[in-house]
Design a binder for these strands. Structure first.
Lengths: 311, 311
DNA sequence: CGTTCCTCTGCTCATCTGAGCAGAACCCTG
DNA sequence: CAGGGTTCTGCTCAGATGAGCAGAGGAACG
C-alpha cells in the first residue's frame, strides 16, 4: 500500500471514525507517529478538506494577507456564497458585525450611501452603539426618510445605535460650480461638512464607473458623462468623486461641483471602513486600497483574491 | 455575539489558523473548555465539514452499517465521483484493492465476467497473488483471449496473480436443455464446473434485467425474452441466472439451459465477493445481498444508501 | 567498498485536549 | 421569592498529540 493510499485510510479512520492515532496505528500496522505524520501530509496535499460552512464564516488567511500587503488596520473577508445574489448581504452583515464590535465604540460616524450601505444599516442590531452621531459624508438622493434613500441609511444606523442622524441637505453633484459654492457657504451645510470631515470613523462604499451608477439613476450624471469619465480613465467613484486607477480625481471641474467630504479628508480619518462586494467593483476596490483611502476593508473572497494578485 | 457565531470564529481559528484551544480562548475571551465545547457543537451542527477528497476514499460508516444490516463478512463503499462515468472505475479499483489485500491469499478464484470484471482485472496490480488459479464460474462470450471477453478477464486476473486461468468452454445459455446436458457431461467441462464450485473465493457481478444485458448483446437472449422475464418478476441475473426480488429463479426451464455454478453452490462458498456499481443495478444488488448470495460487497455510495433504506 | 549525505523511523517530553464532575447560574413553577 | 430542576461553567486528571531529536537505513559518489 503506497503512502498516499495510507493517508486516505488514516484520514478516514481519524476524521470519519474518530479513532485515536494509536488505534489507527495498531489497525494499519504502523506506529502512531507515522499516523500523525500521514495526517499532516494528508492535510497538506488536500486529501483532507476542512471547510467552515456558514453564512458568517470568514477567510482569516486572506484577511491577514490583505492587512499586510496594503498596510491596513484590519480586513474582513467572507466566502462567496453559492448564490451570487447573496454576496452583498453577507458582506453587509460582516460589515455590521465589524461595526458593532468596533472599540472604541464610534461616537461620530460619517457614512456614504447606496445599496451596500442600506444593507449594512439593515444588518445592524439594535444597540450596536450607544448614542452615536451619524453624519452623511456626501450629498445624495431623496431628503425624506423613505427606505433606501441616503437619508434613511444614516437614520437607520443612528437609530439602531441609539443616536441621531445629521443629514446633508444637498444633491450629490450640482450642475454649476456657483450653486455648489452657494450651498457650501450655507452655515448649516458647512457645519455638517465639517462635522463629517472630523468624524473619527468613516463607513463608505464605492461604485464602478458604469451606466448602472446611482448618479445616473438619480439624474446627477448622464450615461454620456460616465462614458467620458471612463475615457479619461475613471474606474469608479467614492463619496461621489470619480477617480482613476491611481486614485487621482479624473475631472477636477466635475469634482468641484460635488458636495461632500473630499478624499484628502477621508484619507486623514483615523478609521475609515470601506465595504465592497462583487466583481464589478474589483477595479475601484483595488484603487481604494492602493491609494490608502481606507484603513479597514470589508469584502468578499473573490475581491480579496483579486486584490492579492500581482497586477 | 451569539453562540453560533462564536462557533464559527472558534472553528476558523482552530482549523484554518491552527491555533490551540488555549490561544483561541484568550483571543475571544472565553475559557479553553468552552472553546472545546464550541468546536464539538460546530462539528455536530455541520458548521465544520470535513471531507476526504480522493479517488480511493471510502465510506467506512456505510460499510459498517451494511455489514451489520446484511450480516456480511465485509463491505467496501466508495464515494460517487463527480463524473458519473468514473464510478465503475472507482468501484473496480476498490475491488482490486480488496482482492489484493485478501488474507489468506486466494488459491482458487471463481469469476464471472462483464464490464465490471474487466475493469477489476485491469485494476489489479501485478503480483496481487502468488499462483492463483482463476476458474470461470459461468459460460460466456468469445473463447479467444481478446480484450474484454470472458476469457480475457480470467486470463488477466490469473496472469497478474502469477497463476493460470481455467476457461469454461461453453456458451452462457444454450438453446436446448439436451445440448446443455451434453456439454455438462463432457468430462473436461464437468471438472471445470466442479473446480469452480469448490473455489474458496468467488468474484462476481450481476446485471439488471433490461435490454442492455450482455446476454442480449451476445445473442443468448432476445429483448422479448428479457421482457418476459421482467413480466415474471426478474430483477436481474448473476452468473447468467435470472432471479426475482426474493432471490428465486424466475424461469426454471431457462435456468436449466444455463451453464455455470448454480446459486446454491455460490451461496455455500466461504467467500463470495459481489461487485456492483451504478443506479441501474440497485434492485439486483438488493436482491443479492438480501438473499445471502455474497459475503463481501463492493459498491458505490448511492447503491449503499439505497441498500440501507427500509423498503 | 567506504564515506557522506539525506530521509525516515520511533523515541522522549512537554503540551494539548476530552471526559467526567462539582458547584454556579438560570429558569420555571407554585 | 423559595424550591427543584436544568443547563452552564471551570476544574482535575488521564489520555492523546506534536515538536524535536538521535539513530537506522538507504542512495550517491568517489
Amino acid at each position: 500500500m503506497d503512502d498516499e493510499l495510507l493517508m486516505v485510510r488514516v484520514a478516514e479512520l481519524s476524521y470519519d471514525e474518530n479513532k485515536t492515532q494509536d488505534e489507527i496505528g495498531a489497525l494499519l500496522g504502523i506506529s502512531r507517529w507515522k499516523v500523525g505524520r500521514l495526517l499532516v501530509q494528508a492535510r497538506e496535499r488536500g486529501i483532507v478538506r476542512i471547510e467552515i460552512v456558514h453564512p458568517r464564516a470568514r477567510r482569516l488567511g486572506l484577511e491577514r494577507e490583505l492587512v499586510q500587503r496594503y498596510g491596513l488596520q484590519d480586513a474582513v473577508v467572507v466566502p462567496a456564497p453559492e448564490e451570487p445574489d447573496a454576496v452583498l448581504e453577507r458582506v453587509a452583515r460582516a460589515a455590521a458585525d465589524l461595526l458593532a464590535a468596533l472599540r472604541p465604540v464610534p461616537r461620530t460616524l460619517a457614512v456614504s450611501w447606496g445599496r451596500t450601505l442600506t444593507a449594512i444599516a439593515e444588518a445592524l442590531p439594535d444597540g450596536w452603539a450607544r448614542g452615536v452621531t451619524v453624519v452623511q459624508a456626501n450629498g445624495g438622493v431623496s431628503l425624506n426618510r423613505r427606505a433606501g434613500g441616503a437619508a434613511s441609511v444614516a437614520a437607520t444606523i443612528a437609530q439602531r445605535g441609539g443616536g441621531h442622524a445629521v443629514l446633508l441637505p444637498s444633491p450629490a453633484i450640482l450642475e454649476r460650480v456657483e450653486t455648489k459654492r452657494a450651498i457650501e457657504s450655507d452655515r448649516t451645510v458647512s457645519a455638517i461638512l465639517e462635522q463629517a470631515a472630523g468624524a473619527n470613523t468613516f463607513l463608505f462604499t464605492a461604485g464602478p464607473a458604469d451606466e448602472g451608477s446611482a448618479h445616473v439613476e438619480n439624474g446627477y450624471l448622464t450615461t454620456d458623462d460616465i462614458a467620458e469619465l471612463v475615457r479619461r480613465g475613471a474606474v469608479g467613484d467614492l463619496l461621489g468623486r470619480y477617480i482613476d486607477a491611481d486614485g487621482n480625481i479624473v475631472d477636477p471641474q466635475l469634482d468641484e461641483r460635488t458636495v461632500g467630504v473630499d478624499l484628502e479628508q477621508l484619507r486623514a480619518a483615523p478609521r475609515s471602513i470601506f465595504v465592497t462586494a462583487g466583481a464589478a467593483k474589483h477595479d475601484i476596490a483595488r484603487t481604494v486600497v492602493n491609494s490608502g483611502l481606507c484603513s479597514i476593508l470589508v469584502t468578499d473572497e473573490p475581491t480579496a483574491r483579486d486584490l492579492l494578485e500581482e497586477k
